[in-house]
Design a protein around this nucleic acid. Structure first.
Lengths: 222, 222, 222, 222
DNA sequence: AGATAAGCGAGACGGTACGTCCCGTCTTCTG
DNA sequence: CAGAAGACGGGACGTACCGTCTCGCTTATCT
């Protein structure tokens, strides 16, 4: 709700203005920026509000005024930096579309923002609002894109009509998050590709399509 | 290492005994028990050594004497509670064997030990030793069982010989962990069952085997 | 000075009026009233401008606009409540006049304004302007009355002509304030009475004027 | 009670020792010393526990462990430095004995410890435990000496036997504290002397014992 | 009538200190 | 010598007020 509040303050309804001095957009941005910077350096647990406030040249109270806790702040900071880099092409092939999206996720998780994702999911294990924020504001937007891909595949006849979309997407993305979180094996783009094929071939109507799979039948390299 | 130390102290070499009072087995057990109890209540982050020591009626120093940090203690505590409840029957069918194991994992994660698993994975996101402990001492033993199932399936001709075992197991278990950690959807035994079928049918040699799938083609109920 | 400013603004020079909205008399009164109320409840130190403004339904800045600091505000508030309740009769006897005034002081100090006097003196120990305000605007007016009493007594021949007036008044009032501030013993009207006699007659043995003293030779009752 | 605790820890019962690490006498002394130093510099209100802890190279918690608040700490610090400088000679004359004690009090109040006394009394106006500490641990010990003087005077026949000792002492010391706290007039040793005489001999005309008074019938010099 | 000027409430701002909690270490006595 | 008890220096927590600042609004005087 604090995050919603923040969003409202930064965007919507121009009509009604609450009385009093409006919040400082400058402070807000500084805080988010410092949060990301420090998060990248240390990690979620060792990140302190005290340090963020100091780094952002801001009173501690200003941080607490707008975010109820570290988790919410980190979520906001992360999500404020995660806009609009999802959009991907409609290639006409489910297999290709999904594979592209999955590979992009792998790239994100391996990049410097991956550290923040893991902090978010890790912290979310003892903070319901945090995991909710991650789910609704990071994962779901991507999922909605993926739903669309799947629906296109169904209407094109590439996928079975009886498909459970949620289950399918879990099958596609769950393994990526598993490797990302447990780190028991390499998380490569090629892994995403092979995974996609594996799940695909259990999903499409017919079963002779081995031509696609060959694309990533390379020996694994971890 | 501290865990090794602890194990040695509690078991091995009867020949040489260092002088002085031996460590208190009673204290050790109390500490582990309190750790689990408190971990079940809050998360890893909010768990404090102070609280554990108080709960276990033990001096803080006694905790620090035997475990170098919270992660090591939590790992030890978790593992001390995770013995031998895996073993499952060899039914002669990969599908059935895997489905059984997956459903058992779901049961574990939904039970009270699930709270601890999530704390472990959550805490592990900012503590390498913690995630390592989880990986090696909880996940891997189960995986080795699963490898065996898959190998049996291959030798029986149920599964393709070219199968990437690790990828297959990630495809099977990743989605379960995803739902467990992100909580975006119900984590039921039926989900495990359907998931197994989904991955299976992308994995086996032939494609007409819809007879198996019907087993869980029930409308989802979350 | 701020107080002077306030006085000017609220009263004087009708000729030239500065432009802009005039200060709100309503706000001013509310602030003073809230100050007194809160001062009565807690002490000077724990009194906060924040609380005063909230209690008075007034913006904090309005307080700071008219009073430079807490001490000035408290002094103003106190003095605004301390009008004209001193006036007392000229009975023709120093002893009786003084005794009456002393008893009246005791009544004031024991009443609800006493709480404020103690806050003022207490706060004055670390704020020169505060103790100055108390001294000049509360104590001195009463003292000037008392000077008059003493002078009358001297001219009537009741008191020695060589009397040090200040010292005498300190001897009369100091003990009252001492009990009021240190609270080591009951501060009663009877105490004021006995004290007056003691100072009048002295303490040493060689003495004739026991006729007056008998008036309050009652056993003390605290 | 925290002060009592401190006293117990620093002095009494050698038999029973509470378990655990004993409190650090070194820390305690440092804290008291720093308190006095900073109090002398700034004042009671602007004195912060934070600064004391820093100055004493001590954790803030260590301060709070032993003193419930700033007031109690300041009281302890003051009193720890106020031992055993009261003792004064028995000259055989009440007048002289009292005058000596009063002059000594004036010296104390005018000295650098006076600042702390005023902070104590000032703070005590909104903190009952503080004024109690001042009363019982600073004022009363001196009073007990003074009681003795008065009793000697009575038994020697110098003072009236019907004397109310408490009232008499208030009459003697109240004026000193009044000048000390209100600062309306000079607080000199000569003032103490004259005051003593005034109370001794009274103020009214019928009087013989002028021989004593002449000792300080000097023109006042403020 | 409109411009200009201040005061008003509300409340956010950068700060400082609060009093608490826990860290990991230490120092004591008891078993 | 291990263990319990618990004090230690340290550091971050989240809160309360400080005194200042921007807002939109109101209320006056001065063109």
């Amino acid at each position: 709700m604090a995050m919603a509040q923040a969003l409202i303050a930064s965007s919507a309804n121009p009509e009604h203005r609450s009385p009093g001095r409006p919040r400082s957009e400058h402070a807000r941005k500084n805080i988010l920026r410092s949060t990301l910077r420090l998060l990248r350096k240390d990690g979620f647990v060792e990140l302190s509000i005290e340090a963020i406030a100091a780094d952002a040249n801001v009173g501690k109270a200003t941080v607490y005024r707008w975010w109820p806790n570290k988790a919410a702040l980190v979520a906001d900071a992360f999500l404020s930096s995660a806009e609009a880099d999802l959009r991907f092409p409609n290639t006409g092939s489910v297999r290709r579309d999904l594979s592209l999206q999955m590979k992009q996720l792998v790239r994100v998780l391996r990049g410097k923002r991956g550290r923040i994702v893991s902090a978010l999911i890790g912290g979310g294990q003892s903070d319901a609002s945090l995991i909710k924020a991650f789910r609704e504001r990071f994962m779901m937007p991507r999922r909605h894109e993926a739903y669309e891909i799947l629906r296109r595949g169904i209407s094109r006849g590439e996928l079975r009509a009886s498909l459970d979309l949620d289950l399918t997407l879990d099958a596609l993305y769950g393994p990526i998050y598993l490797r990302f979180l447990i780190r028991h094996d390499a998380l490569t783009e090629q892994f995403a590709c092979c995974l996609c094929s594996t799940v695909m071939d259990g999903v499409i109507v017919e079963r002779q399509s081995t031509n696609h799979k060959s694309a990533c039948k390379v020996t694994r390299t971890n």
